[in-house]
């Protein structure tokens, strides 16, 4: 058979596998950072709520810095700062550290909002039923406040998942970096970027729709 010149000359099916693996790496770094960051963020949120002025003077400004400096600058800064203090971190570890702190700084506000969403009379009622402070937090504040801010948390989590694309500046081969590598080789920017975009969209869109439908259901 005569070899035909294909429109997608450089792009082979196995490249799709390469992109798929990169998408898995995007998911892995996101899941790791979001879960640790959320736990940290909830603790910070609780500190912000209970700490009053002490927390407003200490924890709040530090968290604020991570929200006011572009993530990409934070990543470059930390990646170049770690060796100064004798830490040898690979791009993945640096990415996870910064994404985790970044997530925590965003979740802290969400978590504080969640605690504030539970009205004091309800908490007093819980305490007067004989619940301890921690029981009140665990069995009253968590389910009610958590529900109130769940959509906001999903927004933060999806934002971090998308922002994980920035770890590519450190050289970690996640989805966007992988697509750049393929573009350099195949010179098919439109096709490959479309595939990468479709991957991101497929990760993000169903979750955001699900969260929106949950929000509607709970609002009733």
């Amino acid at each position: 058979m005569e070899p035909t010149v294909s429109f997608f000359s450089g792009f082979a099916p196995k490249d799709l596998l390469f992109l798929g693996e990169a998408a898995l790496r995007t998911m892995w770094i996101s899941v790791l950072s979001i879960s640790i960051g959320t736990l940290l963020g909830v603790v910070f949120g609780w500190i912000l709520y209970e700490g009053k002025w002490a927390a407003a003077l200490t924890v709040a400004p530090i968290l604020d810095i991570f929200r006011s400096v572009p993530l990409i600058i934070q990543l470059v800064l930390f990646y170049n700062f770690a060796p100064i203090v004798g830490l040898n971190l690979d791009p993945f570890a640096s990415g996870v550290v910064i994404l985790t702190i970044y997530t925590a700084s965003l979740v802290a506000n969400v978590a504080r909002g969640g605690i504030e969403a539970v009205e004091p009379p309800m908490r007093r009622a819980a305490r007067s039923l004989g619940m301890s402070y921690w029981q009140d937090l665990r069995h009253v504040v968590l389910p009610i406040g958590g529900r109130a801010v769940f959509p906001a948390w999903v927004g933060v989590a999806l934002g971090v998942m998308k922002d994980s694309a920035l770890v590519s500046v450190l050289g970690y081969v996640e989805l966007l970096k992988a697509s750049q590598i393929l573009i350099t080789r195949t010179q098919e920017p439109f096709l490959i970027l479309s595939i990468a975009g479709a991957f991101y969209f497929a990760l993000s869109y169903p979750i955001s729709r699900y969260a929106a439908s949950l929000e509607r259901k709970w609002a009733q």
Binding site: L158, K162, D163, A165, L166, S168, L176, S179, Q180, I183, E188, P189, F190, L191, L193, S194, A196, G197, Y200, F201, S204, Y205, S208
Partner: peptide, 23 residues
């Protein structure tokens, strides 16, 4: 709206940078 909200901003920049170059 959905594309802007569900893909990374960096991806969108690359799209305007390299993606449109294809045309």
């Amino acid at each position: 709206v959905e594309l802007a909200r569900n893909t990374p901003a960096l991806f969108q920049l690359f799209f305007f940078g390299f993606g449109l170059g294809a045309f």
